[in-house]
């Protein structure tokens, strides 16, 4: 702190002492909003807990601002972890030159994830750095941090308010990434009040400008408990590009073990 700030502080201290009740009151309201935001996020997290494992086919359609399209096909196997982030395996089928390429991720609640890449032409498993959170996944509008498992601990929360759109009630909350390498200053999430499912997320870049919007469509319930969207659509407002994910063939209880998610097994993934 330099001398000028010291000086200004002395002048304003009188003003500040007059308004001392005011900041205390707003701080209390902020605490409430944070607690409620956390409560909603925790409830959404709790409702999705205990799924065990699942497998799903995934089609990714990438569009540039001229409407030109390219398609990626892959499948994803995820296994839930007790007290840690999920373990996820993604195997690519299309474009054909990346067929058989596989991506393994051990996500963690607070620490950086562990990630490995399998290159089938070389039969080589490469452990890769996971600090590239804001980088694009497969050239899409989804960043690595968007597709990683959304652990409760990865954000702090703030409740904004309730909204009703087309007769559906939503909680609108803000969340702030705890990891400094995140590409976002904040995200605004709409959860429905009935089932605590996310329907829309606005992503704000580090300059706090609206960067992307993700919308979820076609929720279906599996095992009478777990909701999964059939379609996730990400639009980048700054570049005009968009990516749509289509999920098909969800299968739960597929009987994986942790041994199916080791770097050695990655070589056998297909």
């Amino acid at each position: 702190m330099n001398i000028h700030n010291q000086y200004r502080l002395n002048i304003t201290s009188a003003l500040l002492s007059l308004c001392i009740a005011m900041p205390a009151w707003t701080a209390h309201a902020a605490d409430d909003a944070e607690a409620k935001g956390m409560e909603i996020a925790a409830e959404a997290d709790k409702r999705d807990r205990g799924f065990g494992d699942f497998k799903v086919k995934l089609q990714m359609i990438l569009r540039n601002k001229h409407g030109q399209q390219s398609t990626r096909n892959m499948h994803n196997i995820t296994r839930e972890q007790e007290g840690d982030g999920d373990k996820t395996l993604i195997v690519f089928d299309n474009p054909r030159d990346v067929k058989g390429t596989a991506f393994l991720s051990h996500t963690h609640k607070l620490n950086d994830d562990d990630q490995w890449l399998y290159l089938p032409a070389l039969k080589r498993v490469k452990r890769i750095s996971s600090s590239n959170k804001s980088g694009p996944f497969m050239g899409s509008e989804f960043a690595y941090e968007d597709i990683a498992s959304q652990e409760l601990e990865k954000y702090t929360y703030r409740y904004i308010g309730n909204e009703t759109l087309d007769g559906v009630g939503y909680y609108k909350i803000e969340r702030f990434p705890t990891n400094p390498k995140s590409g976002y200053a904040r995200q605004v999430v709409w959860f429905d009040t009935a089932e605590y499912r996310p329907w829309k997320i606005d992503f704000y870049d580090r300059k706090n400008e609206l960067l992307k919007t993700l919308t979820y469509q076609g929720y279906q319930q599996y095992l009478n408990k777990y909701w999964r969207a059939d379609v996730m659509d990400m639009v980048n407002h700054q570049t005009g590009k968009s990516t749509t994910l289509h999920f098909t063939n969800y299968q739960f209880n597929i009987g994986t073990t942790d041994m199916d998610f080791t770097p050695n097994r990655l070589k056998r993934a297909r």
């Binding site: 950086d112 562990d114 452990r127 890769i128 750095s129 600090s131 390498k181």
Partner: peptide, 9 residues
């Protein structure tokens, strides 16, 4: 051996 740190292997 490989040591995987933030941006460096």
């Amino acid at each position: 051996s490989q040591l995987t740190t933030a941006n460096t292997l």
